[in-house]
């Protein structure tokens, strides 16, 4: 599989899924490109798994469509050779051995049986290949699911919450696996509800909340626009300080424990302003909100979609 390959494009357009009154996915449009890891981020229940099931034609969209290299998933000949997916590590028959689970999947797509041994080796399950998978730990099940995804040596890989149930060594392994798959020019689409996890692996982010698209941006851009920097001020003369700031046209927000937070003005300027008015400061510190906070803020807004009040407290 060459790195310059142009195959492996996923296009999602106007995807909507309704369950009766409830809208799980609402007019979702984005595309996933080869050669990078695209993170699919959203809180639990945001519609990530539903979207991924629709991408594989397992669930039928109410409206909208998904195209993989211009085709519907169901139109792909031998789809495991195009798309390898780990949606649910428990989506297998526990009474079947790991070997036979992979063998029946390989045979259905005309993949040589020798490939089964190879992928078992890649995920480190060779020793338990003939054990029935019902006795597997969650982490082993996850590895078996990843082995199934790799079977057809596909151009596109999709993982739904792959680090769930993995130990630290396993998490490290899957991160490196995803990065190396992308480095080989493949399309890697991975969902998570953890911003910190995405920050370590993803090059591009698609963020959804309540089934709606909230952001579709590069990781670098997301960090730049969403990691809020502000200055925290604490003073025994808070009333006077607020007065002074107000007169200078600076908006301050009370943040609890007698602290004020100011956006968009440097600490130097604020310090000089306080000094000019002889206000005692107990704290004057530049702060950087974490990506996790930025993500929570972004998705919290999607929860209160029609809310208009400015929050008075930034931190929860």
């Amino acid at each position: 599989m060459s790195a310059s390959s142009v195959a492996g494009m996923i296009e999602v357009s106007g995807l909507t899924k309704r369950y009766g009154e409830k809208v799980a996915v609402h007019g979702l449009s984005f595309h996933v490109s080869p050669g990078i890891v695209t993170g699919f981020l959203g809180p639990n229940g945001a519609g990530k798994s539903t979207t991924m099931r629709m991408m594989l034609d397992l669930d039928h969209p109410t409206t909208g469509r998904v195209r993989i290299d211009g085709k519907r998933y169901a139109e792909l000949r031998e789809p495991l050779k195009y798309v390898g997916a780990l949606l649910d590590a428990k989506a297998l028959h526990g009474g079947r051995s790991a070997y036979h689970h992979l063998l029946c999947l390989a045979q259905s797509n005309g993949i040589p049986a020798s490939r089964v041994g190879e992928v078992l080796d890649v995920v480190g399950l060779t020793a338990v290949a003939n054990k029935r998978s019902k006795n597997f730990s969650l982490g082993m099940g996850q590895r078996l699911g990843i082995a199934a995804a790799l079977l057809g040596d596909p151009e596109i890989l999709m993982f739904d919450e792959p680090v769930n149930g993995l130990d630290p060594e396993g998490i490290h392994w899957i991160r490196n696996l995803m990065k190396s798959l992308a480095a080989q020019g493949r399309t890697v689409f991975v969902s998570s509800h953890l911003m910190s996890e995405m920050a370590l692996t993803a090059d591009h982010l698609v963020v959804i909340g309540q089934g709606r698209l909230l952001a579709d941006t590069s990781m670098a851009e997301f960090i730049r626009t969403n990691s809020r920097s502000y200055v925290r001020l604490r003073s025994p003369q808070q009333e006077q300080l607020l007065d002074v700031l107000h007169r200078a046209g600076i908006t301050a927000v009370t943040a609890g424990h007698g602290a004020l937070e100011v956006d968009g003005v440097g600490a130097e300027e604020l310090g000089e302003l306080a000094a000019r008015h002889q206000i005692v400061l107990h704290e004057l510190s530049p702060q950087q909100a974490s990506l996790e906070e930025a993500f929570m803020q972004l998705t919290a807004e999607s929860v209160e979609y029609h809310a208009h009040a400015q929050p008075t407290e930034w931190r929860t």
């Binding site: 099931r53 594989l56 034609d57 397992l58 998933y73 169901a74 792909l76 789809p79 495991l80 798309v83 997916a85 949606l87 649910d88 428990k90 989506a91 297998l92 028959h93 526990g94 009474g95 999947l105 259905s108 797509n109 199934a148």
Partner: peptide, 18 residues
């Protein structure tokens, strides 16, 4: 029924979407 009770059906249909 083994396909449905175990969730294997989703893996099976991803492999054979027809």
């Amino acid at each position: 029924g083994g396909e449905y009770s175990t969730g294997m059906i989703r893996t099976s249909l991803a492999a054979v979407p027809r």
